[in-house]
Nucleic acid binder design. Structure first.
Lengths: 150, 150
DNA sequence: CTCTTATATTATAATTCTTATAATTAAAGT
DNA sequence: ACTTTAATTATAAGAATTATAATATAAGAG
């Protein structure tokens, strides 16, 4: 693990401790996995990835911990129509672009759309907390596969 | 029903017919309900709303029809973490702002974020098809309830 | 270091949303 | 009115997530 990642993990653990949340080995592992994961895993992904290390861990534990991490603000939950939610460590603000063919999720850095939020506040009278935006399309690989077929 | 809504319904039915989709009473009712609904209903909302008119209708019929309407492009599916999907008749392009307290969804008109899409294409190499954006916050009513408590 | 207590985990069952299956019914063109 | 093909119904199955109750354990107090 890179030093910076190690530092991020320590930072996250401090955040947990400050919130009065206990640092259990399972919770630590879920957090660490999310931090190092580039694939925006589902709860089941995490469960499967950790079952070697924690053979007796329950799926409920994964869900419980993801809920705690989300409530603390360390983790973001991404939901889609068909399948299960995906979870994303909130390292820095970014948006996602998602391949409709293979489901791959790629980070896409773009300035935060603050203007949309403030306009929405004015027009609707809501007290805005945040927004989500996702872009959908076909990734490079899937485009090439498509081309080869013809 | 307003004349314009009636016209929209006729237009939608024509679209169905052109796609070779049969106009059954149940399908007609689901479509009409969505067109007149301002609440972005769930499949179950629609099922409950129509069970007076169609006592023998199956939930599967609602889901089947929603899928068909979505595939044709008449209806948009909105998914969230916890609960069930919501469905929205695609009358005109708009975004949604969602109350995190009571779940209310309000339409929010804003110019389409084409720029984000084209930049995403350049940066990621994706062939972009569309995007979604939602704004979250607390609606006016829920803010007032909050104020009264203190 | 040990004790205590509240919290977390486990195993399991229950729930909820959605889809699959097979038999029956009905839309729409001929 | 007939025929064909798609839609509906009733039911069951499936998958994702949450609830429950018993057990285990993190972390602070003494």
């Amino acid at each position: 693990m890179a030093v910076s990642d190690d530092h991020k993990l320590q930072e996250a653990i401090d955040t947990l401790r400050d919130s009065g949340v206990r640092i259990t080995p399972q919770r630590h592992a879920v957090l660490e996995y999310l931090l190092n994961s580039m694939i925006h895993p589902t709860a089941d992904d995490i469960y499967k990835a950790l079952e070697g290390k924690f053979p007796n861990m329950s799926v409920a534990t994964v869900y419980n911990n993801l809920r705690v991490l989300r409530q603390i603000g360390l983790v973001r939950e991404l939901t889609y129509g068909d399948s299960s939610s995906r979870f994303d460590y909130k390292s820095s603000e970014h948006y996602h672009i998602i391949c409709e063919e293979c489901g791959k999720i790629v980070d896409f850095h773009y300035p935060t759309l603050d203007e949309v939020e403030s306009l929405a506040e004015q027009v609707t009278g809501f007290d805005v907390s945040h927004h989500r935006m996702e872009i959908y399309g076909k990734c490079d690989e899937c485009q090439q596969v498509e081309t080869q077929k013809h």
